[in-house]
Design a binder for these strands. Structure first.
Lengths: 137, 137
DNA sequence: TCTCACATTGTAATCATTACAATCAGAGGG
DNA sequence: CCCTCTGATTGTAATGATTACAATGTGAGA
């Protein structure tokens, strides 16, 4: 049986082909795609797919804690299937979003000051190593 | 002479009443307003103000390094006049964005891995102390 | 097989932001 | 003090991501 069927069942949401495809895509492509990128890619194999379904499914997966929304791109939301907490770098040259695994003292969702912390996001903006090499900027 | 006149001159951009008002508002109201909130507030005193001017000025101030864009709210950009780097908490109860002054090892724009870092953003999502007290959530 | 709750689809609405063209303003030169 | 010219401001229209909504499809359990 499919690994992703199990995951959906375990989280108590209905298993559908669309949800399976979206979950599989996010789990195997850690490119932090936008909703439109997911849509364009999956439409190839599943032409009747609707963009509304993308948004609905993203919401469902988020509710299950299987997905996080990255707030790094000014134009659109990017999505990342949740494995372990990590930070992200948006490269202003190539536009790619890279995973950054730095030690973060606040990843553990603990914070002084009496606030309750549910999510921790760490974003860097700059130029990635590859572009620095290429462009000499 | 006005403090804000000096700031604009020092950064080599033209001094205009609109820019002065927007800069003053951001410097005296650290509520992380959206473009619309700035617009609504300043329109009271300056009825001919255009929303395009808000966006243009925000861009100019950003280019000068006087302003940073917060991408913590899923719906819109929030703006913060830059004093010292700090992190932010978005409270899901009251919707307010609070400054969080925690020690962050990456605030100094240094990062291993060969990438060039220009901006560091730390976002927390949760419930602020005040709402926790009130709601008992 | 039937049924019903829930998922999917497509279209239309919403809303922040950007593009663009016309007008305005103010610093500097005559 | 007026002219000029560059850049700022304004208003309207376009863009594009996301959401709302209504109609249709589907699959698990009776």
């Amino acid at each position: 049986m499919d690994k992703y069927v199990d995951i959906l069942k375990k989280h108590g949401i209905k298993v559908t082909p669309q949800r399976l495809e979206i979950l599989r895509f996010l789990d195997t492509h850690h490119t932090h795609p936008s909703a439109d990128e997911i849509y364009m890619e999956l439409k190839k194999k599943h032409p009747s797919l609707s963009k509304t379904t993308i948004y609905n499914t993203i919401q469902s997966l988020k509710d299950c804690g299987l997905l996080v929304t990255l707030l790094i791109s000014p134009n659109e939301s990017r999505f990342d299937s949740l494995i372990n907490p990590h930070h992200h770098l948006l490269c202003s040259e190539c536009g790619k979003i890279l995973d950054i695994n730095v030690e973060c003292p606040y990843s553990r969702k603990v914070l002084a000051g009496g606030h309750r912390i549910d999510e921790v996001h760490g974003y860097f903006k700059g130029v990635c190593e590859k572009c620095l090499m290429k462009g000499g900027k």
